[in-house]
């Protein structure tokens, strides 16, 4: 059991990294970058306390 847990601990980063790269690629192909760019397109004055919303 310990050997299984050790192996999982040692190699789990590979499928995690593959999943993360997959998510990033999918997000980029579905316009994620542009969406974030739109959100940050103008200064959020309420976020920095200059207005209240």
């Amino acid at each position: 059991m310990n050997r299984v847990a050790d192996a999982v601990g040692r190699w789990a980063w590979i499928p995690l990294l593959a999943l993360s790269v997959g998510a990033l690629s999918w997000g980029l192909s579905t316009g994620g970058f542009e969406t974030v760019k739109d959100w940050f397109g103008q200064l959020c004055t309420s976020c920095i306390g200059l207005t209240w919303r």
Binding site: W13, L16, L17, L19, S20, V21, G22, A23, L24, S25, W26, G27, L28, T30, G32, F33, T35, V36
Partner: peptide, 15 residues
């Protein structure tokens, strides 16, 4: 689901 944001976050988290 914000795949682009989560993908970026998880890549940096894992590496």
């Amino acid at each position: 689901i914000p795949y682009y944001i989560l993908g970026t976050l998880f890549i940096f988290s894992v590496t």
